[in-house]
Design a protein around this nucleic acid. Structure first.
Lengths: 344, 344
DNA sequence: GTGAAAGCGCTAACAA
DNA sequence: TTGTTAGCGCTTTCAC
């Protein structure tokens, strides 16, 4: 309809130069903290910036300098501590080195992940953080084409830089704990498609531990689309109503375990007398639940810190170890106990 | 040390033009979905893009078009559903209109908030979402200087666009519920400095409800720096050990209420017989806690949706209502009950 | 130390 | 329908 109410033409670097009586080159030098500018001029420039309310235009800077000073990260979701916590650390670390975080979600979908990475590349990110090692086939192609420093988190990968732990081994430890308690029938509730590398590794680890003692995991006892607490609760009901109700249920994270425990309680099952349930990650509330949760403690902050460390080193051309292996710790609490007598 | 291993000069729009035998203008038209390009040329351009692995340079586009197609948001933290949930909706909505979210955290600090907003402006955001209405004095100055469409969330504000609810009234309702149950001594555990507008409104609301019946809130019973579950737990211990132990404790959100309940249980207090505890927001797990939580349900998704709606309309120059008032709903569950007899 | 000037890769008149 | 061309606001040689 009408014209914008005289939006006062945005202040540019040239305006600052004019006002402070120096060249644009000198203003640029001051802005970038060059030490070769005479004190008096520096102050004049700073004064002019202040008076004019100057805000640098990063698009122009990025275009001219061919560095954006941003780092991209694509995580499945922020709706869980699993990713929000390491990301907070990551963000803080890169911030200290003057970088800004550009964040995107994949929703556990490789196609979406690829799209988001492409977008981040469009924005000119200088480096990239990913989760897991199972991506769209064209993802690494793009990253390599752009010669983009990149690290994968929550995984170990022989080919590409990574920081994480061995999901297979972690799952094995958890299964071993339950097997030692005499459990024979297992259930699994996880929150990502089995195509997901971390989850499939965990399932493999569980299966291996079982088969080592002559047991198997019934496919009917494997639920893999539970994201919320309530999803897990419903999955648990299905397990309990299924053909082969388990006495031990392994959940993908502590929130899912919380939901599973609720379902068990609603069915008047006693924890851990009638049923044992395990989580993963050791969220803050895990020890405070009605039935304190047996879980694997993962150093979430360290994942974020190490990822940042690696990328910053890579950006500076410093040599740094490409793979970092963390070791989760089994925390045994009240949600697991001896298998019930095979009464009925 | 050594040169970068021949990073293959980034493919530019000009490369695409050369390869497909058209001008850069035509390539740009194709990229921007102009309908005035002959089909054959369009296809040639698309083919060339594909073959060359072309990725647009958004810095250049932003500089030339003077629109970044990004929208900024500054929230206190992502570590709580309170902000991560509306943000997810917000993100989704603006995405549908072709905008990208640029996200920043303020950590509840106005200075940090101002810094982050400045940075977002540097990135050339086309619009901005904020939380609350108590900001650094220079914040609105900057926003207005840039003529930036902006909306405040979780608050109602007569002067600026906003979407939220009346914190004072919500707190009043909660207090009224507890007063009706006969409680006389109150405690408050919140997670933001009292300088915070939402929190101070809530405290005001609580105090008003109390004074209306001749009661007061003991300053010693007000804790305002509890962010994590454990913080709330410690705060609760202090309340219980303090000079004026409350029979009703009002918590800033459901997580804090969870922590407070734990502390009460650890002191062998029965909920709600010995002590009543309330939350805020009605997180998914609130009804599933050992003591199902009495809380205020807030339409978190709607906050994000409406914020997006407003900004998109503003960007299109459409007229749209500037203020939106939501109405939280009191959800009464098992964590609150009649005040204990004044026995001891 | 400082300035002049040539781009960075794209969009948007304007002309054809 | 398409091409030419002049910037967008900054950084960065290269002289001085």
């Amino acid at each position: 309809m009408t014209d914008k109410p005289s939006s006062p033409a945005r202040v540019s670097l040239e305006d600052v130069a004019l006002r402070s009586g120096v060249s644009t080159a000198t203003v640029s030098r001051v802005l970038n903290g060059s030490t070769t500018v005479r004190q008096s001029r520096r102050e004049a420039v700073e004064k002019a910036c202040e008076e004019l309310g100057y805000v640098i235009n990063r698009a122009a800077r990025t275009l001219a300098s061919r560095r954006s000073m941003t780092i991209g990260a694509v995580v499945p979701t922020l709706a869980t501590e699993t990713f929000s916590r390491p990301l907070a650390t990551f963000q803080q670390k890169i911030h200290q080195s003057g970088y800004t975080l550009l964040l995107a979600n994949s929703n556990f979908d490789p196609d979406t992940e690829l799209k988001e990475v492409n977008k981040l590349v469009e924005y000119g990110i200088d480096a990239l953080m990913l989760v897991g090692n199972s991506h769209h086939p064209r993802l690494w192609q793009r990253i390599n084409q752009q010669a983009l420093p990149c690290i994968q988190t929550f995984t170990v990968d022989r080919h590409y830089p990574s920081v994480g732990y061995d999901n297979e081994q972690a799952a094995g430890e958890l299964a071993a704990h339950l097997l030692a308690l005499g459990h024979k029938v297992f259930g699994v509730i996880v929150g990502t498609p089995p195509s997901n590398d971390r989850v499939s590794d965990r399932i493999t680890g569980t299966r291996q531990a079982l088969s080592a003692v002559g047991l198997t995991l019934d496919d009917a006892n494997l639920f893999s689309r539970a994201f919320t607490m309530n999803d897990a609760r419903q999955a648990m009901f299905q397990l309990l109503d299924g053909p082969n109700p388990p006495t031990a249920v392994i959940c993908g994270n502590d929130l899912l375990a919380f939901g599973a425990m609720r379902a068990a309680s609603e069915r008047y099952l006693r924890i851990p007398n009638d049923i044992s349930i395990t989580g993963f990650n050791d969220y803050e509330y895990a020890e405070h639940l009605e039935h304190p949760l047996t879980t694997m403690r993962v150093e979430l902050d360290k994942i974020g810190a190490r990822a940042a460390e690696y990328l910053l080193a890579a950006l500076n051309g410093e040599a740094i170890q490409r793979q970092t292996l963390l070791k989760p710790e089994l925390i045994v609490r009240g949600s697991t106990g001896s298998a019930p007598r095979p009464s009925r």
